[in-house]
Design a protein around this nucleic acid. Structure first.
Lengths: 261, 261
DNA sequence: CAGTGGTCTAGACCACATT
DNA sequence: ATGTGGTCTAGACCACTGC
């Protein structure tokens, strides 16, 4: 520490200077997206280290043969993802490693997207029933309207993890039991042309009933996580309501918040 | 229904045509932001009803005397908030009411921002201690380094709701106990110049220990929600680690997911 | 003061959905 | 064929930061 030259910030070229970006203007993939992906890859594999400055946007755009707005759009998307931080008068830098590690963790979103991808899923029930009052309310249907009731048991390593109970408006989707066990509900919905837009979730806890405990291989009264979710497509229609129970001893929700500024 | 003229979609002017937007170019508030706020207000108070088309961006920009990119930026911010949906070849419309209601619900973020705002908070401990291994790891400090330990009991309506245990790097902040009970931790951090950037959270459940049960006015073995959170500032420094317990009978996490497209 | 990001303009062409 | 949003350009001026 003693002999370190104390020019706190030597002005150095950005590590970006030596990086090569391959932009394909004939690709249908937008240029800003191509750039964002390659920047993200550079961050991920360490070519851009935490704290590194990216160098100003103007230089970058001329070097890449892009306009500044396009470069900004690419950078902004990574800022929105939490990988970069912008500071006026300073520059754009890669967030520090501790934060990055967190960002790589699985999120609740993954759980949503990949629902059904867990090692094994067994479909316990898959039938059409009249909607109860609460289900009808959640899906925006009339009480007694036909809904598909889906009950699944999810396991990992041969141990039950969760009891999933879903309701979908009848006719929205063809729910083949065999496919459900391998493909996952959300993937099937996507394949059927349902584009998810948003979902509202509530996570709570309570003690397992005797029946739940038996199904989940827990003791009666053990703590379980509960989750209710209503998912909407991009027309605002409720397309799924789920009421799920997770073994607290084997599952936790893990996710990331980005603070909107 | 019988005599309705069945031109399924009569081309009508957007409800936006009759709306007035007051843009102040001398204001330091960006134009796109002014527009976004006024659009959001129009949606909220019903001038723009769910399903309404906004009309094309070009017309809107000329009517407002703005450039198209500026108008797009305003619209995009509302799309990101989940209030609007864009469809190529169709237009931009207000999402349907069911989704909107969900969006208005409190989110985990509110919990973060407003931590301490709950009716009453009692500070049980507020002292400097050496960091244990797990706390040191979470905060990125050396084991044994000084950290502030904060223990609070939060209540609503005279009933305990949560037991909050926070660790902060020593010297980051002056934590006055009296202010903590009225102002909230995150507000105090913000006031001290700490700008939050992101946080990673894990939500789980377990049975309450005897001591926890006593403090939360529950029975031993009652299910409680657990939450661990590490918060980072915009330099990537960990500025807070919390390990909290909530009474499952009185609290649940409620939040919204927007599906990135 | 110099350098950075933040905002804004006035166009352009394209892909896509609907008619 | 028409109208929409999606993308892109090549500039401009301002506000803030750090020296």
């Amino acid at each position: 520490m003693a002999k370190t030259r104390d020019r706190a910030r030597e002005r150095v070229g950005s590590p970006l200077d030596t990086l090569h970006f391959a932009l394909d203007r004939s690709s249908p993939v937008p240029l800003y997206y191509q750039l964002a992906q390659q920047l993200e890859a550079a961050i991920e594999h360490g070519a851009l280290a935490p704290g590194n400055l990216l160098g100003n946007e103007i230089d970058l755009s001329t070097r890449l043969g892009l306009s500044r707005p396009t470069v900004r759009q690419a950078i902004q998307s990574l800022v929105d993802k939490g990988l970069l931080v912008r500071r006026r008068g300073v520059g754009t830098q890669v967030v520090h490693s501790q934060v990055k590690r967190s960002l790589e963790l699985s999120s609740l979103y993954d759980d949503l997207e990949a629902a059904g991808q867990g090692p094994t899923t067994r479909v316990v029930r898959n039938e059409t029933v009249p909607a109860s009052a609460d289900v009808a309310a959640a899906l925006g249907l009339a009480e007694g309207a036909d809904v598909i009731l889906l009950e699944r048991l999810r396991s990992t390593h041969g141990q039950p993890v969760a009891l999933l109970c879903n309701y979908l408006p009848a006719g929205l989707l063809d729910l083949d039991t065999a496919r459900l066990e391998t493909t996952g509900l959300y993937r099937m919905m996507r394949a059927a042309g349902v584009t998810l837009h948003s979902a509202r979730q509530t996570v709570g806890a309570r003690s397992a009933t005797a029946e739940e405990a038996a199904r989940l291989d827990e003791k009666e009264g053990a703590a379980v996580l509960t989750m209710q979710r209503t998912a909407y497509d991009d027309t605002g229609r409720a397309v799924e309501y789920g009421s799920h129970i997770y073994r607290a001893s084997r599952y936790a929700f893990d996710f990331q918040l980005l603070v909107r500024t």
